[in-house]
Design a protein around this nucleic acid. Sequence first.
DNA 1: GTCTATATAGGGATAGAC
DNA 2: GTCTATCCCTATATAGAC
Lengths: 211, 211
Amino acid sequence: MDKPRMNSAARRLQNRDRLEADIVAEAVRMFAECGYEGTSIARIAENAGLSKQNLMYYFPTKQALYQRVLDDVLDEWLERMAHLADAGQPADVLRAYIQAKLKFSREQPYASRVYALEVIGGAKLYGEQIRDRVVPVLRRDIEVFEGWIAAGRIAPVNATHLLFAIWAMTQSYADFAPQMALVLDRRLTRKDYDEAEQTIARMVLAAVAVA
Amino acid sequence: MDKPRMNSAARRLQNRDRLEADIVAEAVRMFAECGYEGTSIARIAENAGLSKQNLMYYFPTKQALYQRVLDDVLDEWLERMAHLADAGQPADVLRAYIQAKLKFSREQPYASRVYALEVIGGAKLYGEQIRDRVVPVLRRDIEVFEGWIAAGRIAPVNATHLLFAIWAMTQSYADFAPQMALVLDRRLTRKDYDEAEQTIARMVLAAVAVA
DNA sequence: GTCTATATAGGGATAGAC
DNA sequence: GTCTATCCCTATATAGAC
């Protein structure tokens, strides 16, 4: 991937991108585990392998780093969830939606948790972005459901609460995984996620009366 | 309620109980809004109407106060949820369970959120109590579901994931209420909770194939 | 861009008078 | 039980040398 003849300015930019990505990855993990206030930039820097002052060269304030973390979380999530409701049979779309959201919980648990922590705390630092980037997507999904109902393609359920339910069930496999692990007396495995997907899909599809 | 002839020792105890309850109530709210590290005992004390040093007379450390907060949250929750699965038709028990859990989310959103924050963070400070007090209850519920399946009273679903799903859907009406408010462009009302209850019950009952 | 040094604030916790 | 005063630590952020 590295072009040997790349000029120095481009190499500098690439190094910077890589370093920033390392910092953000460590920040996601720590913000998820310890919360915003419980995480110090010194420990993020230490775990990312640079000094606190050096980290602050790349991210001038803790809030800037936090915003960047949530920006990246949303970028990744929106990219994965895009175009899911565009077309197809309701049952297939719903199954794909559940599968994609659950996959995100499994593959990016820290991202899911950072987002959840922000929402639970009242979205005090990131509410505007949620309003601008997340809410329109959710509203569009609800409209898709309502279109299906109007067309008689699924049973008449409350589309808003149906979406909230799907979101809640899939999200909890990231957020509440620690409690699930205590109940199961072991960490969640890939098989658990597959069984979760089947159970959730069964509930949703049975409620809207499509196979 | 106050007996005029109550002796001074009893009155002192009662005042202490009331003051501690005020402190805990304020602590629940602040821990839910700002997290453990984001909440200072000075601000809890200020909002509860006493000095920081005086608060520390009643709760010697911040952790002690936090433990007390979670103890009280669990007490309240366990009391409300007790005896729900003891008897009755599966459909009635499931409906009552959903209703009770959802009512807790509506009436004690801060309690739900403090608990959620602790779990999301990996239950680092309260994991042992969750293991001792919550997990046995959840396992018993799962066994009840499995008993119904074995007896052919409900369809054969994955009982564990069914319970996780019910927990997730009801819990989210406390934890994710801020995001729901953004989607609806208004705060959740009693009517929203009623509609949520109907939608969740519909999903659960349809999945286990009982009316 | 990375380092040493430091400013400045706030937090939890303690001591001791009353 | 409540107050004043204070210790000690950690945190974010900044200044300036190299």
